[in-house]
Write a protein that binds this DNA or RNA. Structure first.
Lengths: 217, 217
DNA sequence: ACCAAGAATGAACCGCAATTCATTCTTGGC
DNA sequence: GCCAAGAATGAATTGCGGTTCATTCTTGGT
């Protein structure tokens, strides 16, 4: 079984000049498999209750192989989280090019955030359980991503205030945290209860309340 | 904990009829010292990076002593969290007796929630870092407390809707989660950045936005 | 002062799991 | 087919830390 896969992978061998899907190293098929396995296993049992051996088994590789691709167990998790946030930020940035109203922009962010559950359930669980700390080392580096999220929202809010769409008597920071917190809590509750919901409809409701709350009178 | 109870039962046998401050068992000075030490140490390093020996040292007792008062390391944390939530719920319940408007009640909850930072910083950190999971065993039992919190808010919201104060076209559940999430995120951000804030003023701003968002038009 | 009986101690035990590395397997060029 | 060179393996190493328990210390009654 391993044989088959391996042969297939090796097919993409040396000289495709594109860094498309190298057989080895970051971006290789095995690299990705380890990341996915880690996210799944950790989502299920938590970081500290997930032996590297369990991740290895899920990925279909030997324990030691993980250390050929990653510096340490931490490094695996860090990499997975990083790439997820990066994807989110790139997606938002992209969409902002064609979406100009502050209201629309906030609604878009809310929706992508809430949708993450559907996109990759394990990652959503992991975000709710691990990113919000417990392990200091995760806390510290992922704080940076959260700050970036909040930053984006704050800027949109501030622009809305300048344009006279939003009231000016509440701080953009408070609004940004409220929005993030509200959505994240909804997501969190969905993740823990296992309930599915219509992310578009829910996002619409939340943003309806929030936008009514901050619209200029 | 079970041990402690047993001991207490035995202890109360001889003479002092007051359950005031027993020398031993739950409620004893040493018992409380262990709980406080655990909260501090775990807030600082996280549950899994806090050896029992570190907690013992902070409490000024021997490692083994902790097992005279608690069943296990888990049990210490569980007990600390339980008692904090219980205190919160009792406090809210008490105040509700003299506070009747839905608006006022929600404002009160928001304020107590935000204030927790000032009351016991270590506990606030711990709530932000450990309660929101990572360790499945914590997740499961503390979920119950969260549900209770949300439940209370939902009921207040529903009453407000019935009385025609709040709009009826948003679900009470969504509103409750939004409120909880918004406040918790504000608290969380304060905890992580270490910034201090005026909890009354911040609570007022959040609730201003939220209440404007859900008031009947 | 003496003596249980309970309380406290902390060194030792034990299992677990991150990481390493000597060995084995694959591969692609000859 | 044969042979490096790299990739992969997984058993062994190592250190940590929760829990136990034989021992020591306190205490209150006589």
């Amino acid at each position: 079984m391993r044989l088959g896969l391996k042969r297939l992978a090796k097919k993409t061998r040396p000289e495709s000049i594109k860094a498309d899907a190298p057989a080895t190293g970051p971006g290789s098929e095995k690299y990705q498999r380890i990341l996915d396995a880690a996210v799944e296993v950790i989502a299920e049992h938590g970081y500290f209750s997930s032996p590297v051996s369990a991740i290895a088994k899920r990925a279909g590789v030997a324990d030691g192989t993980i250390y050929l691709y990653f510096k340490s167990k931490d490094d695996v998790l860090r990499t997975a989280i990083d790439s997820t946030f990066d994807k989110f930020h790139r997606q938002v940035e992209e969409e902002f090019k064609t979406l100009h109203g502050p209201r629309e922009q906030l609604e878009y962010i809310a929706q992508v955030h809430l949708e993450s559950h559907a996109v990759n359930r394990s990652m959503a669980v992991l975000m709710q359980t691990e990113v919000r700390q417990s392990a200091k080392f995760i806390a510290e580096f992922s704080h940076h991503h959260l700050v970036k999220y909040i930053q984006v929202v704050r800027e949109v809010v501030r622009r809305g205030q300048q344009e006279g769409i939003f009231r000016r008597d509440v701080s953009d920071g408070v609004v940004a945290h409220c929005m993030f917190g509200a959505i994240d809590e909804l997501l969190s509750s969905a993740v823990f209860t296992g309930r599915v919901y219509d992310s578009k409809a829910t996002a619409a409701q939340v943003m309806d309340v929030l936008l009514s709350g901050i619209q200029a009178r």
